[in-house]
């Protein structure tokens, strides 16, 4: 019995070390899983919505081709704003962008966006710009639904609203395209962004 007790004491440092490391692993895992609740930056969405409103107003009453280039520029600006917002939020939450929830969200978000990019090139070459607003809203919505599948319910709900806006845009006259883009990328981003920021911490 004395020998057994001594053996336990000799083994102690390894045991403490492992248990401390196990605790830290548990904390990191819990934080990673919990962070997926707010993988989407709410205020970043509001900022993207504001740039979309500006783009929509700039593109209004211009030719369909000019409006196309305005919205392409807006896509670049929005991407930049969103990237900064995601980086800031991940830094604030002390979670690297390479963490599991971030990787998972990005991998699910990217394919519909890539499909949208390819369709944009094809439709631009075919001079079929009038259906682009519907296609953009539909595929962006699909990206938000798939990317937000592991997030809080409001994120995929926002994606569904974008998809609905896209479907309506496809069924409406081409002249309304710019207003659908303005309402979708502008007001939907702002509305849902505020809700996400308020309910899920920024």
């Amino acid at each position: 019995m004395a020998l057994a007790q001594q053996a336990r004491i000799l083994k102690e440092p390894v045991s403490i070390d492992r248990r401390a490391a196990d605790n830290l692993r548990f904390i990191r895992d819990t934080m990673e899983r919990a962070a997926s609740f707010t993988a989407v930056p709410g205020w970043g969405g509001v900022a993207v919505g504001c740039t979309a409103l500006a783009a929509g107003l700039t593109a209004a009453h211009r030719s369909i081709q000019q409006a196309f280039f305005v919205w392409m520029a807006e896509a670049g600006v929005a991407l930049l704003v969103a990237a900064v917002a995601v980086c800031r939020k991940s830094r604030r939450l002390a979670l690297p962008l390479g963490s599991q929830p971030s990787r998972r969200a990005l991998l699910s978000f990217a394919p519909p966006l890539l499909a949208g990019g390819m369709l944009t090139v094809v439709l631009f070459r075919l001079h079929e710009l009038s259906i682009l607003p519907g296609v953009w809203l539909l595929l962006y919505g699909a990206a938000v639904v798939t990317g937000g599948a592991f997030s809080v319910r409001i994120v995929p709900l926002m994606g569904l609203c974008f998809m609905l806006a896209g479907a309506l845009a496809l069924a409406s006259p081409a002249a309304w395209g710019n207003w659908f883009l303005l309402a979708g990328f502008g007001f939907l981003h702002i509305g849902f962004g505020v809700a996400i920021a308020r309910r899920h911490g920024g």
Partner: peptide, 30 residues
Amino acid sequence: TLENSLPHLDRIIHERMRLGIVSALAVNES
């Protein structure tokens, strides 16, 4: 062993479920 090695260890947080609650709240506003 862990508790005895660190007499000032916060046992409120050390409990596994409470550690989980605090870890989850650390990365969320609420």
